[in-house]
Amino acid sequence: MLRLVLRAKGLGKVYRTPSGEVTALTGFDHTFEPGCVTAVVGPSGSGKSTLLNLLAGFDTPTSGEVWIGNDAVHALPERERSRLRLRRFGFVFQSFNLVAVLSAEQNVALPMGLAGIPSALRRRRATALLERFGLQHRADHLPHRLSGGERQRVALARALANDPDVVFADEPTGSLDSAAGSKVMDALAAVAAEGRIVVLVTHDPTLAGRAQERLRLHDGRLVEVGAPAVLDTRTSIAPHDVGAA
């Protein structure tokens, strides 16, 4: 399947605050390639989250451009950006961000429902995604009944619900122990191996070390682009091998 690239050109963001302007990101240029996990690293306040917000269309840049294929994310009206997030992007957050009143299966089915997929089909696909991440027996459980690792894998299943081109993961292992975190990283690698772009924002050097590409930000600038690393052997595992954390 032909996947698209995600490009940022001269991307910048300046926040206006009562005490003056704060430059969170400036002159960011990069092309994110399909089939690759790109880790964005840097200290707190370096602009990692701002970059992710701009790439994902959560926020509009002050300068520069973001393109996914032929779609100019930076210039789209909110309605079109919502459509883009629904069809082409998937998200995994540090604090899981599952909808508390929905079961695991309902959480996974949520983006499909928003996309207008019929109920029977979205149920079938949600079940398949939960199976992929070893959670079929937890389908009816509410998030608070799941462990941290399980919640994050439900979030990953939800991120894949509409077969996106890009998965954004913002500190996905930040709330997990190392074993559970490792499993989630395995899963992200497997997702990238399917030809998707995975943008991973992390503080964790171990996690960043397992990415194929590493971008280092400092004071809102891209200061280092790490050469693609040798593929971690664990990224080659088949998706169904990713078991419970």
């Binding site: 959560f58 919502s82 629904l86 998200f91 599952l98």
Partner: peptide
């Protein structure tokens, strides 16, 4: 707020 932010993040439009 967070729940609604997540629903918007995964593709819901404001009017939803």
């Amino acid at each position: 707020t967070r729940e609604f932010g997540v629903v918007r993040a995964v593709g819901a439009r404001p009017r939803f």
